[in-house]
Design a protein around this nucleic acid. Sequence first.
DNA 1: GCAATATTTGCGCGATGCTGCAAATGTTGT
DNA 2: ACAACATTTGCAGCATCGCGCAAATATTGC
Lengths: 112, 112
Amino acid sequence: MSEPAPLPTACEAALSAALRPALFKALCDPVRVSIVARLATRQDPVAVSDLVACCGIDFSGVSRHLKLLRQAGVVSATREGRSVRYSLNSDALCQVLRASADALEQCSEQAG
Amino acid sequence: MSEPAPLPTACEAALSAALRPALFKALCDPVRVSIVARLATRQDPVAVSDLVACCGIDFSGVSRHLKLLRQAGVVSATREGRSVRYSLNSDALCQVLRASADALEQCSEQAG
DNA sequence: GCAATATTTGCGCGATGCTGCAAATGTTGT
DNA sequence: ACAACATTTGCAGCATCGCGCAAATATTGC
């Protein structure tokens, strides 16, 4: 009874939950993608001022993008002296992307 | 010479290319996610009118969302009589999501 | 406390996005 | 050709987003 057979509705709900708009919203802007790409290549956290170069926009804009990415769980911030250094949550991000793919795959397997 | 050693820049570019904003833009709207989730549970293509129920918005809006999803390569459309039936490109979508995760992973492995 | 440096936040502007309504387009059957 | 049904597109309103500039906040060193 704890397993009333997986209904189509169940995996649909699971997929709907896995595909969280907030995450994709974080990755749908070119500037944010370039920030993520930049952070991905650095093991050590990077200061905001070092990210400005790869973005082509003002300090403030970069800071805002980073805030959004942080709120989406994509990056983490730690203060170090005067500067705030950001790092990419690679593992978490990979996991979420793969979980989305898995949920999708499971749905379509079950459907067909 | 064809392999000048993989620079950090190379995987950064690869990741930047893998994380195509257009795809994520397609998935950053709740209505579109529900459409994708709905289509994922159906092996056979679904008509627009059958998708309206799960969206809570007007016909026209659903049609527009489907257009955007189609342009992003997420769904495919085929006309069948009066109606146009949409189906999810599950395999392609899975592949893109996993490719993103792989590119990300490769970058962070190379970095650290 | 003050100046210097690094980042965040407030504000306003222009661009983009989502929506409903109505009109246009495509398709079938009479 | 015409009516009925399904979908798409044009239009306008409203919200949200991304941006630069300037002001505010945080931290360090004198």
